[in-house]
């Protein structure tokens, strides 16, 4: 892997983390002293993706603007890596008129036709629309692909299996990416899943499956590259599972009392680890790291500022956009 690609993976991971930290800050800023989920500039459930940056960065590095992505309820890392406009995405999270969905969607319902990005708050249900996007691309004779992201909890939903079978049967250019962060809210994977490796489920549908261990962004990049190339070449779907990390709670306000792995979590943070690695390999320097962070911070703060300055939707227009 060349140094430019590695530096780019690092840059993307830092941008995502910087973004999630900023949302974390602003989400909680006006919910004190007693946490009230419906209060503040950013109300509602908030599922942040810190720790899962390697998945989004490694997979989306292979995608072009015309490729489609569907993400689940935890979508920010994937949206950023897919190139969704940061300002309009942030405005949507702040519920503003200039947001991607004019404030009608919110953080779990981001739709960006420009980058063919969407997400859904219903576990597992983002897979079928990705099949349809892949179907349309194939019909049009394009070499675009669709990538459906889902948590490991989604791999036990019926719709996951319906989707794998249909994608395999119709040889659709889809890549299924299971983000195994060990937890589905409070339920550990071992308590929900009858099989050790979700990628093995690919075997049941006659398609290739691969699991990447250890939240390793370079391994994600390489494995996803093969899957995307297969799909582009008309060779059909692939199922990937990536062992990643939920650095924070399931959603903000989650006390995580159920979590027995908290002690080891900070040591598993993929960003300092990759940074050290790239420093040692002389891909990065202290200076370039500082610069990457500064640039990320400037971009993120600009997006947040844009959101805060954006108009709040007019309540008398709440019934609009039901029909085209």
């Amino acid at each position: 892997m060349d140094d430019k690609t590695r530096a780019e993976l690092y840059r993307m991971m830092v941008l995502i983390r910087t973004y999630e930290e900023a949302i974390l800050r602003d989400y909680h800023a006006d919910k004190k002293p007693a946490f009230d989920i419906g209060a503040g500039l950013v109300p509602g459930e908030m599922h942040l993706s810190a720790g899962q940056e390697p998945v989004a960065a490694g997979v989306c590095a292979h995608l072009r603007q015309h490729d489609a992505v569907t993400a689940p309820h935890r979508p920010h890392h994937v949206a950023i890596a897919k190139g969704v406009d940061l300002e309009r995405m942030t405005a949507e999270i702040f519920g503003r008129e200039s947001g991607l969905g004019r404030g009608r969607g919110g953080h779990m319902h981001l739709f960006d036709p420009a980058t063919h990005f969407s997400c859904s708050g219903i576990v597992g249900e983002g897979l079928p629309p990705a099949l349809g996007q892949a179907f349309a691309f194939k019909r049009a004779g394009a070499d675009a692909v669709a990538v459906a992201f889902a948590g490991e909890g989604a791999a036990n939903a019926g719709v996951f299996h319906e989707s794998l079978n249909l994608a395999a049967l119709w040889n659709l250019p889809v890549i299924f990416v299971v983000e195994d962060n060990d937890w589905a809210i409070s339920v550990p994977r071992r308590a929900s899943t009858a099989i050790g490796n979700n990628a093995d489920r690919a075997f049941a549908y006659g398609i290739p499956g691969a699991r990447v261990e250890d939240n390793d962004v370079e391994a994600v990049y390489t494995t996803a590259g093969e899957a995307v190339a297969r799909a582009r070449a008309g060779e059909g779907p692939t199922l990937l599972e990536i062992h990643t990390l939920r650095l924070w709670g399931h959603f903000e306000g989650d006390p995580q009392a159920y979590r027995d792995d908290l002690d080891e979590v900070p040591g598993r943070d993929p960003i300092p680890r990759y940074e050290q690695h790239l420093l040692a390999e002389q891909v990065l320097t202290e200076d370039s790291i500082r610069q990457v962070r500064q640039e990320a911070s400037a971009r993120v703060e600009k997006a947040i500022e844009f959101a805060k300055q954006s108009p709040i939707p007019a309540p008398e227009r709440a019934a609009e956009y039901v029909f085209a």
Partner: peptide, 21 residues
């Protein structure tokens, strides 16, 4: 013809419609 996978093929329809079919 589809498999008996109503979620998958109805959702497939939605995705295809989003892309202009």
């Amino acid at each position: 013809d589809t498999p008996i996978s109503e979620s998958a093929f109805i959702g497939l329809g939605t995705g295809a419609a989003v892309e202009g079919m």
